[in-house]
Write a protein that binds this DNA or RNA. Structure first.
Lengths: 133, 133
DNA sequence: ACTAGAAGTAGTAATAGTTACTACTTTAGG
DNA sequence: CCTAAAGTAGTAACTATTACTACTTCTAGT
């Protein structure tokens, strides 16, 4: 990987902040130092840095949302090559480590666990709001 | 929610298959029965059924990928209103249930846990492949 | 059964996030 | 200090999804 002022500035920015920025957020902030950097450059460099292992991408899932008639919350393994999604039992979740590889035959390369909810501030704001008026 | 043949057919399709289909996959399959259903209708109905609780959406995260200089795998809580991402300790993962709400003050409404890796078939295919030729 | 209006539909345009392409520029090794 | 590989800005293209519009269907009350 060759040096470039763009890449250096992007990396410094990601390292300096701790708000899990999107590419767009990094673009906005880096533009203050390099006003005519392009968004494409930000994306390309972020992905290179991820590939190099310097930073991490908290990525959703490729290829769009998936739907399931099993409505209880449950975990999945996702093949990054064929895009198949496979159900996991709750039990195997509790012993995350090797169990999942044993259960599925997958070689697990990474995981993102994202719990979704409403944070304390947003809960408080909601309380003071009328639903309609 | 009013009856419509489109919604019924979509729901039947999701219930009949167990491959965690995308909206596009459902569209392709429902089109065999209703050749001029529109993709927008599929999306609208799927989202309505999710809202009603009949089916579940395994959704990534809204608003694009996020980047992090903390490269070790770790979990997050994601506020569905302000889009903030907050780091979770590995310990709290092990006792999923109430611990996360205590730790973060979030009201957890759902979670998708997606482990990413390469499935058994794709691993085998890879073995028989040359990297270049 | 008939009808009004709410809810739904097809088809198209628009949007967000991201990647691809192109002609030009920068970097770094000999 | 020259050259080839790697990087860049700017733009176009692409994918997944939602919004909009004019038309159609469903259903509750007569």
């Amino acid at each position: 990987m060759k040096y470039s002022i763009q890449r250096q500035t992007i990396l410094e920015d990601v390292k300096a902040r701790h708000d899990h920025p999107t590419a767009e957020m990094i673009y906005a902030s880096v533009r203050k130092k390099l006003p005519n950097i392009s968004l494409g450059t930000v994306y390309r460099n972020l992905n290179q840095l991820v590939e190099y292992g310097t930073i991490k991408k908290i990525t959703p899932m490729q290829g769009g949302d998936r739907f399931d008639d099993k409505t209880e919350d449950h975990a999945h393994v996702h093949c990054t090559i064929c895009n198949q999604l496979f159900d996991l039992s709750y039990e195997s979740l509790h012993a995350i480590d090797r169990t999942i590889e044993d259960e599925t035959g997958y070689h697990i390369s990474s995981y993102d666990i994202v719990f979704r909810g409403i944070c304390h501030e947003c809960q408080k704001k909601r309380e003071g709001e009328e639903l309609w008026n």
